[in-house]
């Protein structure tokens, strides 16, 4: 085993050896989320080194002038070996960036890894800047710029927020299991996005909508939870739905959802309100067709991946790609699935 794979093996957030189930391990010394959080912005847009894991996770549904759909991902993960930070190589904070562009036929992926403490990667709250190598997401959360590059693609995007932050669960305290595992979780789902995709076939000007998730915790999964299926859906009428299903090793699931109105009012739904059912597998046995029902809102839709093969062949592999849906409602969104490798 090479040293890099070894390091990744032990990254708590990305425990390849145990899969995503590794997220359900002990907390020693780290802070844990508590109910009734009071957020402090812009400070809370920045890192929380005393929590084991944290991410700045942006997904976008785009289309070019011809209406051809594209998906885009920009993610920065922070993973702490210990609940503190210092300057220099001795920093226990590790950073991992993932970027992707999904077309109907191709899926471009890049990954970056960096040590904290030396300036190669990090997040500053004010003025906000999240970066790893040449990748960055910066701005004041109203107007933002974002860029990333890989060996075969790159993108530069401008983002404009036209709605408020949305807090999931109980005011941003999002419970993940019956045993009480939880994270702090809020989103900015109202970004308009436009920019240039540099693809091997040439540059493409695109516009669309983006969804930025912020989440941090020290033990987001219960021990018996092996992965998750996460949906962010934008309805054509302007409402949005965030929902996830946590898979358990006993075959049972834990679901959670947030209904977001077009003007930003959020309604959380507890376990069981949202029902999620896989309908069809892709060639690699990953479910890329789903039925989602939220009876309380009269939602019963079939979700379909734009490109079945949106596998993220990164150190910790998972599936992440744009989707469309129809049924009682129509629209588009993003799907993330872990625990299938």
């Amino acid at each position: 085993m090479n040293a890099k794979a070894f390091v990744l093996c032990l990254l708590p957030v990305t425990a390849t050896a145990q899969g995503f189930a590794g997220l359900g391990t002990d907390v020693d010394g780290f802070s844990t989320p508590a109910p009734n959080p009071v957020f402090d912005f812009p400070a809370d847009h920045g890192p929380h080194p005393d929590y084991r894991i944290e991410w700045w996770y942006l997904t976008a549904n785009l289309e070019d002038a011809d209406g051809t759909p594209y998906g885009l991902q920009w993610t920065l993960f922070r993973s702490a070996l210990a609940p503190y930070d210092v300057e220099g190589w001795q920093s226990p904070q590790l950073w991992m960036g993932h970027a992707a562009v999904t077309t109907e036929t191709d899926h471009f992926v890049a990954e970056r890894l960096a040590r904290g403490g030396i300036g190669q990667a990090g997040v500053v709250a004010d003025p906000f800047n999240a970066w790893i190598d040449d990748w960055a997401l910066e701005g004041d959360w109203q107007m933002m710029q974002m860029r990333a590059s890989g060996t075969d693609f790159a993108y530069q995007m401008d983002l404009t927020a036209n709605g408020p932050l949305v807090f999931h669960g109980d005011g941003g305290y999002s419970v993940k299991s019956a045993a009480g595992q939880a994270s702090y979780y809020y989103s900015q789902p109202f970004f308009d996005i436009s920019g240039t995709l540099q693809l091997p076939t040439g540059d493409v000007e695109v516009t669309g909508s983006a969804w930025l998730d912020r989440e941090w915790s020290s033990q987001p999964l219960a021990e018996n939870q092996t992965g998750w299926d996460w949906f962010s859906l934008s309805f054509d009428d302007g409402d949005k739905l965030m929902g996830f299903r946590l898979q358990q090793d006993d075959g049972m699931n834990y679901t959670s959802a947030t209904w977001i109105t077009a003007d930003g009012d959020a309604t959380p739904y507890p376990d069981g309100a949202l029902q999620v059912e896989p309908l069809g597998l892709n060639a690699a046995d990953v479910p890329v067709r789903w039925r989602l029902t939220l009876p309380d809102r009269g939602v019963d839709v079939t979700v379909q991946a734009i490109n079945d093969d949106a596998w993220m062949a990164t150190s910790v592999p998972y599936w992440e790609g744009p989707v469309t849906f129809e049924g009682t409602h129509q629209g588009r969104g993003y799907l993330e699935m872990t625990g299938y490798e």
Binding site: M1, N2, A3, K4, A5, F6, V7, L10, L81, A82, W89, Q90, S91, P92, L94, L113, A114, R115
Partner: peptide, 28 residues
């Protein structure tokens, strides 16, 4: 001295056994 996170994969010669304390290795 090398940085395991950015070194080319396959370069680390070290077949590290289980139980190694990565935190100790990386944090000085």
């Amino acid at each position: 001295g090398l940085d395991a996170l950015t070194a080319p994969s396959g370069m680390g010669p070290v077949s590290l056994g289980g139980g190694t304390d990565l935190g100790a290795f990386l944090t000085g």
